[in-house]
Simulated assay, not measured.
Amino acid sequence: MTEKDRMLAGEWYCCLEPELDRLRAEARNAVHEHNTLSPDRRGALGPLLSACFAGVGEEVFVEAPFHCSYGFNIRLADQVYINAGCTILDSGRVEIGEGTMLGPSVQIYCAEHHRDAERRRAGEEVARPVSIGRNVWIGGGAIILGGVSIGDAAIVGAGAVVTRDVAAGSIVAGNPARPLR
């Protein structure tokens, strides 16, 4: 089993492995193209970045600048809007549902580094998926940690740090994010 296979299976893996380095380099090139093309040439999503993603629905728009680790773990449904400055560290699967909007500088972090300092220094980490439902609104500067699911029509307040699942239709805010209703 390769380190990529371990990563995709949600097992501990070494992120410093050459194949993963190569895949991150490909993503950096796609991100660079997206972020540096003029808006009239780029359109809603740079061509290399679009090809890099696991899936892209119709009427998806990703503002520049944008950053991701790999791209191949990101699936965007129809009418997803990602505002400027967003980062998706997609060592795990990231699915964003139809009609969902991410405010500026939203961060999604799938990787969890090892708690043991030596193992962390050796590059050991585990990837946890993130699932965001349909018609969700995530306010600017929010941070979504790996292993979290956000239900349909939920709202995440600006600056929230989401460490636990968010129920459909609920509103959460704060650090850590807690239900407001």
Results as ranks from 00 to 15, higher is better:
V106E: 04
P129Y: 11
V136N: 01
A122Q: 02
E98C: 09
S105K: 10
A122S: 08
V126S: 13
C110H: 04
G99R: 07
Q107V: 15
R120T: 09
Y109V: 10
D116S: 07
C110I: 05
E124H: 14
I132G: 00
V130S: 03
S131R: 12
I96M: 05
I96R: 01
Q107F: 13
T100D: 10
G103S: 05
E98I: 12
G123M: 09
E112A: 14
R115W: 15
E98M: 10
E112M: 12
R115I: 15
E98R: 15
H114G: 13
I108P: 04
R115A: 15
A122G: 03
V106A: 05
G123P: 10
G97N: 05
E112D: 14
V106K: 07
I132N: 00
E124I: 11
C110Y: 07
G97A: 02
G123S: 05
G97L: 11
V136Y: 04
V106M: 07
R128P: 02
I132E: 00
R134I: 08
P129F: 00
S105D: 15
L102W: 08
G123R: 06
E118F: 12
R134F: 00
E112L: 15
R120L: 02
Q107L: 14
E98L: 06
H113S: 07
I132Y: 00
L102G: 12
R120N: 04
A117D: 06
P104W: 02
E125L: 13
R128E: 15
T100I: 09
E112S: 15
E125T: 08
L102P: 03
P129E: 12
V126T: 05
G97W: 01
A127Q: 14
N135D: 08
I108L: 03
A111V: 11
S131V: 03
V130P: 00
R120D: 01
M101D: 05
A127K: 09
V126N: 14
E112C: 11
N135T: 11
P104S: 07
R119V: 03
H113E: 07
C110W: 05
R121T: 10
R120H: 06
N135I: 13
R121D: 10
E125N: 14
H113T: 06
I96V: 09
P104Q: 01
V126A: 14
V136M: 04
R120K: 11
P104K: 09
R134P: 00
A122K: 04
R115M: 13
R121P: 03
E98Y: 12
H113D: 15
V130E: 01
E118G: 06
E118V: 09
G133V: 02
T100P: 12
H114Y: 15
P104D: 04
A111F: 10
G123W: 02
E98N: 13
P104Y: 03
G103F: 11
P104A: 13
A111Q: 11
R121Y: 10
G99H: 05
A122F: 09
I108T: 02
V126H: 08
A117M: 10
S105Q: 13
A111I: 01
D116N: 11
Q107D: 13
V136A: 00
P104V: 00
A122I: 05
E118D: 12
